[in-house]
């Protein structure tokens, strides 16, 4: 077992001449709530895309729980234990809430059932479908979405869609959860509820969480450590309260 859940070593990516991310060294301990902040266009989502395998890093590498995942495909990285949510919500809109979560449960070993078993409706199919549904209900209950499980995902209010996305990511049983601006577009009371949910998820599932956020109240409220990115480079790193009072950081956010 490695010391850090996620470790990036000199991680960098450039698109042509544009260096979107350079020499990023994140060290996230187990069960830590870690924040990644920075002005717009600083490269935060790009970091997420590298870690989840959407982009291949041009320099450096990253390790999850001591295992190098650089160059792996998105689905393989998910199987290894990284799940994410998206800045612009990407739910399966034409499916019901419970089925969204069941898609998340798709690869869990206890529900394994090959396509031909389903085609010929062998007993294994029925038992695994039933267990999957029970498990999905259980996850939805945690997020108070059980009542809406048969509604279409696109008919949910915005705050609940965000929650459903987190629930769906948790269904893949990850070690590390990446949240991309979970509080975007939420009102203060929804944000407060979200903070409680994130803390609850960390405690209940022993989850390591890395989140991108612009809402400094949320970041200072729940994150233990943060890294500030500016123009793809690490500007500051450390305890949340220290970093957010760092004059360099304030300058990056507000200008001179």
């Amino acid at each position: 077992m490695a010391e850090y859940m996620l470790e990036t070593k000199n991680l960098g990516i450039s698109f042509g001449g544009l260096k979107a991310v350079q020499e990023l060294n994140l060290k996230i301990k187990k069960k830590e709530l870690y924040g990644l902040v920075g002005p717009n266009g600083a490269g935060k989502t790009t970091v997420f895309n590298i870690i989840t395998g959407v982009y291949k890093p041009t320099t450096g590498t990253f390790l999850l729980d001591g295992e190098e995942l650089k160059g792996k495909k998105e689905e393989v990285i998910n199987h290894k234990g990284i799940a994410r949510t998206f800045q612009n919500i990407r739910l399966f809109n034409n499916m019901s809430v419970i089925r969204n979560v069941m898609v998340g449960l798709h690869n869990q070993p206890e529900f394994r059932c090959d396509p031909f078993t389903s085609m010929f409706r062998l007993p294994k199919h029925f038992s695994s479908e039933k267990e999957m549904r029970e498990k999905a209900k259980e996850i939805l209950r945690i997020f108070n979405l059980e009542e809406e499980r048969n509604n279409l995902a696109c008919n949910l209010p915005y705050g609940k869609q965000r929650k459903l996305e987190i629930a769906r990511a948790l269904a893949t049983n990850p070690k590390l959860l990446l949240l991309d601006e979970p509080a975007a577009g939420m009102n203060p009371s929804e944000t407060q509820e979200l903070m409680d949910t994130i803390r609850f998820v960390r405690d209940e599932f022993d989850m390591t969480i890395l989140l991108i956020e612009h809402d400094m109240k949320l970041v200072s409220g729940i994150c233990e450590e943060v890294t500030v990115l500016n123009f793809g480079q690490e500007l500051a790193q450390g305890k949340t309260s220290d970093v957010l009072n760092n004059p360099e950081v304030i300058k990056a956010y507000l200008g001179d």
């Binding site: 998105e74 998206f86 990407r90 399966f92 898609v103 893949t172």
Partner: peptide, 19 residues
């Protein structure tokens, strides 16, 4: 079938769900 419709609905999300 769920996985297939998930791919059709949103391929990027389906990939990130490990499908």
């Amino acid at each position: 079938g769920r996985a297939v419709t998930a791919i059709r609905d949103n391929e990027i999300a389906a990939k990130s769900m490990g499908i």
